[in-house]
Amino acid sequence: MLGRTGHGADDARDDFTVFAGAAQQRLFRQAYLLCGDRAAAEDLVQTTLTAMYVAWPRIEDPAPYARRTMLREHWRTARRRDREQALHRLGDGAGPDRDPARTLTVVEALGTLPARMRAVVVLRYWEDLSVEQTAALLGTSTGNVKSSASRGLAKLRDALGDSFAERVSVVPTSQEEAP
């Protein structure tokens, strides 16, 4: 946790720049995994940092606050985007096309998961948070996190198929969580 100042409104935000400068690339990588799109990820980081700037004097521990804010902003944006896409689909009756023969990247495969499940997978298997930490961050139960993580991994395997095994070393499954 950064040392915090307790002065006036502008002084109290001086160390925001220090935190944001140090954290933005890490936040960007997390945002990219959540969004699957570079431009959207940059927007998400800026939105997150803007919200943190406003709330900065009241933030006690910036790192988890940034994670929470980013997830919140991501879900809000995702819902709007989904509504707009649904309206567009109503209009032209078609969804996004993808060549079925082309190999998905892991980030693209993450994009096939529902937003909350994707967040669980990213937090558990990229951010390396525990089940309890992930549950606390998402405001849900540990059972729900385990279930979402397990189903998310299964969906990723389905989405990636053999291409995933070809790109990484493959060993027998022995340590994954039960739902």
Binding site: T17, A20, G21, Q24, Q25, F28, R29, Y32, L33, R38, A41, E42, V45, Q46, L49, T50, M52, Y53, T105, V106, V107, R124, Y125, W126, D128, L153, L156, R157, L160, F164, A165, R167, V168, S169, V170, V171, P172, T173, S174, Q175, E176
Partner: peptide, 28 residues
């Protein structure tokens, strides 16, 4: 079957090719 460690490795490989974002601290 690929393990979670494999997944982490694959994500790291893909993120390694990701160009850093432009500095948005000032805009924020």
């Amino acid at each position: 079957s690929p393990t979670t460690e494999d997944l982490r490795t694959a994500i790291a490989d893909e993120l390694a090719t990701l160009e850093p974002m432009t500095d948005v601290v000032g805009r924020a």
